[in-house]
């Protein structure tokens, strides 16, 4: 939607929009303040004093590092699987027409459209039916299932913008299917895949509901956080970890935004 240059937003709209954005951001900013508080036993506001010592204590906690390591490992493998499956699906759906094409879109979206608890409990009962022991791989299996959709969405959007005649031209000029894929298709969808991969990584890194069902004894970082939320042991350490998680997840999101901003997601942001 575009309006004439002269028209200005009514004040009430501006206030409502600003209020909404503040509502979205203030809680996250508050975490940053709490990471420095000297108060240990409660969530007292305003903080009685500020200190840096919790950063050192959090740094020396092996359980935090173990959880972080597992999260990164799971997110990497799940992202790799999602990239392959999501790209294949997107290519099939956007390049050809076949019976059941719409059903595939639905199938890909289903794991994220259905509540996470259903995906979790379904996978859990399937694992126990098949006598699969819980391990890192069962966590990966769960994560990859719902990560496919973000890769798929990004790739489908890019395929839609990539003209089919480019591919035909490449074939006409004598390139075989693999050469066309490597020199024409991949450069065209590359950034979309990178963006999709980063979002998939962020999604997996943060996922907690499915993980509570498919994880065994190991805890990923979100599971660690959840345990701290239910039974707090050392609140200031949780504050510090929360702040670091916010910073770490912001980076791939910003990167994904800059990779896809040329019209994929914000139509017409340029003049």
């Amino acid at each position: 939607m575009r309006s004439d240059r002269g028209s200005r937003a009514p004040l009430s709209l501006k206030i409502a929009a600003a209020f909404g954005l503040l509502f979205l951001h203030l809680p996250i900013l508050l975490i940053f303040v709490y990471a420095f508080t000297t108060e240990e036993k409660s969530y007292q506001w305003p903080p009685p004093g500020l200190t840096l010592k919790w950063f050192g204590i959090a740094w020396n906690r092996p359980d935090v590092w173990a959880a972080l390591g597992l999260s990164v490992q799971v997110a990497c493998i799940a992202t790799a699987i999602a990239l392959v499956l999501g790209t294949l699906c997107a290519a099939a759906v956007s390049q050809t027409r076949f019976f059941g094409r719409e059903a595939i879109s639905l199938l890909v979206i289903l794991p994220i459209a259905l509540p996470g608890i259903i995906t979790g409990i379904a996978l859990r009962s399937a694992f126990s039916l098949m006598d699969v022991p819980f391990s890192v791989w069962t966590i990966v299996l769960g994560h990859a299932t719902f990560c496919v959709v973000v890769v798929y969405n990004n790739a489908v959007a890019r395929f839609r913008r990539t003209s089919g005649s480019l591919i035909e031209a490449s074939m006409d000029l004598g390139a075989d299917g693999f050469q066309t894929f490597r020199h024409i298709i991949l450069p065209n969808i590359g950034t979309a895949l990178l963006a999709g991969g980063m979002l998939a990584f962020a999604l997996s890194f943060d996922e907690v509901i499915v993980t509570t069902f498919t994880g065994g004894q190991q805890s990923t970082l979100p599971i660690w956080m959840l345990e701290e939320l239910i039974r707090p042991r050392q609140r200031p350490v949780t504050n510090v970890v929360a702040m670091i998680v916010v910073i770490v997840t912001f980076l791939p999101i910003l990167a994904a935004y800059y990779l896809t901003r040329d019209g994929d997601q914000i139509a017409g942001s340029d003049k």
Binding site: H25, P27, L30, I31, Y43, M225, L229
Partner: peptide, 15 residues
Amino acid sequence: PLWSSYLVKIYAWKL
């Protein structure tokens, strides 16, 4: 906010 950690957001509200 959409992509920041779900648990961290809940934690912020607990505070």
